[in-house]
Write a protein that binds this DNA or RNA. Structure first.
Length: 627
RNA sequence: GGCCCCUUCGUCUAGCGGUUAGGACACCGGCCUUUCACGCCGGCAACACGGGUUCGAUUCCCGUAGGGGUCACCA
């Protein structure tokens, strides 16, 4: 039982621990009206009178208040944007149970990429929200391929997108490669359905054949623009009968099909993120729904498919908000029920509010945080022989993160919080928690800037929490591709385990293992010295060379070559030499790794082992003496 | 330009009339320390502006400004 549903004086009330802040809802009904009050803790009552208006103003949508359909719609459409998804489902469940209504609506969401060859990080967030809602409600997440524009489609362009979703764990119930009962899932294979829909719209007077030439149409629009008037097509070449069409065809004209948009009144709909929307029909133009070549355009295809796939929630980026009226017009013209809409803000550029775009990478590289992320990724990619041209290797695209060794969980977690929050403090979400807690009503309205640093911070936390075995498994491929480990690994994993353990949280992404390539070099490998460090730690201190030599000999005799005994041995030796530990450690670090920083000195020695330490110190001394 | 949308620390956000405006990332300082990092402690830092409504506005309403989206036979 998820809550208590009880009869009360007016109609019913509902209590549940799942309701936000332990509030409860009370639905009341008099002879004609239904109203809802949400009772908050502390006795505040929040009425939602406009639900009634919505019900009243649209008798078509709500013919009988208490039919299952109207109840469902009323609750969902009108309470949806003010109640959390959990609350909504809980309430709906109880209405259905108490009124013995048929089964609860199945939530079906979709993401519809065009096969452009890459997966944009902003697109992933949209997909994630869709996926989360479907998973939360036990519904389906569908992948549909929007490839109505042949020009834009590229060979092999779908695979990277599907791979990206698989990598991120955003599994789809229907779509490419998995099929499903509503297929085909490629728009290019659904042309017959669109043509049928277009015919229906023409027949019902919602659309018309237009025989204008492109230049004629453009000329009209430009005239209106010059006059600074709202453009309305004269419909001069509109053919509403076959006779008219035949006459135009006799002139050698070809036709497109346009929507016959209303020119007065408002289009009203509810958006889960934006609230009540009202847009004047007059601001819309007669959009093309079928091209001269007989193929249909996005808006028509989109609406038909969403209907055919029984999509219940359309969650997409705000740039589609202004497309919604024309899509509603199409849907209503076709007699479809409208889906729920949620227009989420786009992901913006680092430090700006402009839409994040793959093409502007050069500009983003001026941002130091973006640059840092890009550089660490490209250093890794270069070492493992990947093409790092910005067209394919770009932090705006998901591939980048896979190649640099990020964790899908970290990316999902970061993206979840980009424009959504649960409360004032929760930041870490497991996959299960995301699914449980996500709700449309807590999506933020304003665009959110992509913050490379915060993403990296999430990645660091998630990676650090990984069991050592998984870290090893993630790091090995990098070492292999960089030629530092054989493939397949024919030795034991002691060395890599030691390196990973010693590196601690210095590993942020798996590819960072290549920062510690020193330890995987064979005997006799020529050290690459950091010049500054060499000067500061070896050349400048007077006794550095002498001490290093003595230390080498001492270490060669140390019986137990593991970190703790080494530490004890070196400290004891320092005392007999009358020096501080700082006087030898730095020289030793540069002398064995060539670098100024790295992990703990004793770990370094233990991981390298006696032979390599001696051999490298000899190299260092030789360089020092020849200088 | 028309239409539409948005506006709390540098960034992501909490906040749904009364708060010392909270958290996270970043940044700065201190401690720890053989380096770097971690960790711990502390600090800096925001309600775009102007009018209302109200005993009281970050919160509600209206303007202004700024930012953004969209206006295709692209999706």
């Amino acid at each position: 039982m998820i809550g208590i549903f009880e009869e009360c004086e007016n109609f019913c009330s509902f209590h549940s621990s799942k309701l936000r802040k332990r509030s409860h809802c009370e639905v009341t009904q008099n002879s004609r009206l239904m109203s809802l009050h949400v009772h908050r803790p502390g006795g505040t009552i929040k009425p939602y009178p406009h639900y009634l208006q919505a019900a009243h103003n649209d008798p078509q949508l709500f013919p009988k208040y208490w039919s299952s359909e109207s109840l469902k719609l009323l609750l969902n459409v009108n309470m949806g944007s003010h109640l959390g998804q959990n609350e909504l489902l809980v309430i709906m469940t109880h209405f259905h149970q108490s009124l013995a209504l048929p089964n609860l609506m199945t939530v079906r969401t979709r993401f519809a990429p065009s096969p452009t060859g890459y997966l944009h990080i902003g697109g992933v967030r949209t997909a994630l929200f869709n996926w989360l809602l479907a998973r939360q409600a036990g519904g389906q997440f569908i992948l549909r391929i929007d490839d109505t524009d042949q020009k834009r489609n590229q060979e092999e362009a779908l695979q990277p997108i599907l791979d990206g979703f698989r990598w991120l764990g955003l599994d789809w119930d229907e779509g490419p490669e998995v099929g499903g009962p509503h297929g085909p899932y490629f728009q290019s294979e659904r042309l017959d359905k669109y043509q049928a829909a277009v015919a229906k719209l023409i027949k019902s007077g919602h659309a018309y054949r237009d025989f204008s030439k492109p230049e004629e149409f453009t000329a009209e629009r430009e005239t209106a623009e010059k006059a600074k008037e709202q453009f309305h097509y004269s419909r001069k070449w509109m053919a509403e009968t076959d006779e008219q069409a035949a006459a135009f065809e006799a002139e050698g004209r070809k036709c497109v099909v346009r929507l016959k948009m209303p020119r007065e009144g408002n289009c009203e709909f509810t958006d889960h993120v934006r609230g009540e929307m009202s847009i004047q029909w007059a601001t819309e133009s007669d959009h093309v729904i079928q091209r001269a070549n007989g193929t249909s355009t996005y808006h028509l295809a989109n609406v038909v498919d969403d209907h055919d796939f029984e999509i219940t929630h359309v969650i997409r980026a705000v740039e589609h908000l202004s497309n919604t009226p024309r899509q509603i017009f199409i849907a209503k013209g076709l007699g479809y029920d409208l889906p729920q809409y949620a227009h989420i803000p786009f992901v913006a550029e680092p430090g700006s509010k402009k839409k994040l775009s793959k093409r502007d990478i050069e500009k983003y590289l001026n941002n130091k945080d973006f640059k840092r992320l890009y550089t660490s990724g490209s250093n890794i990619a270069e070492r493992i022989g990947l093409d790092i041209s910005p067209a394919t290797f770009n932090p705006v695209l998901v591939d980048f993160y896979e190649e640099a060794g990020f964790l899908p969980a970290a990316i999902n977690n970061y993206l979840l919080l980009l424009g959504w929050s649960l409360d004032d403090s929760t930041e870490e979400f497991s996959r299960e928690e995301m699914i449980e807690k996500f709700s449309l009503d807590r999506i933020v309205k304003a665009p959110a800037s992509f913050d490379p640093q915060k993403l990296t911070a999430f990645q660091g936390r998630h990676f650090e929490a990984l069991p050592i075995k998984r870290k090893i498994a993630m790091c090995i491929p990098y070492l292999q591709k960089a030629g530092l480990l054989p493939d397949p690994v024919d030795c034991d994993v002691t060395l890599i385990t030691q390196v990973i353990e010693a590196s601690g949280d210095r590993l942020v992404m798996a590819g960072d293992i290549l920062n510690f390539d020193d330890f995987f070099r064979p005997d006799g490998w020529q050290l690459e010295f950091n010049d500054k460090a060499f000067q500061k730690r070896l050349v400048k201190p007077e006794r550095a060379g002498e001490l290093l030599e003595k230390c080498r000999d001492m270490l060669a005799e140390t019986p137990d070559y593991t970190a703790e005994p080494l530490e004890a041995a070196i400290k004891a030796w320092c005392e007999t030499e009358g020096i501080g530990i700082g006087d030898i450690v730095h020289a030793l670090r540069v002398g064995t790794t060539g670098k100024a920083s790295g992990f703990g000195m004793f770990d370094i020695l233990a991981v390298l082992g006696r032979e390599k330490v001696t051999e490298r110190i000899n190299q260092t001394l030789a360089k020092l003496n020849s200088a």
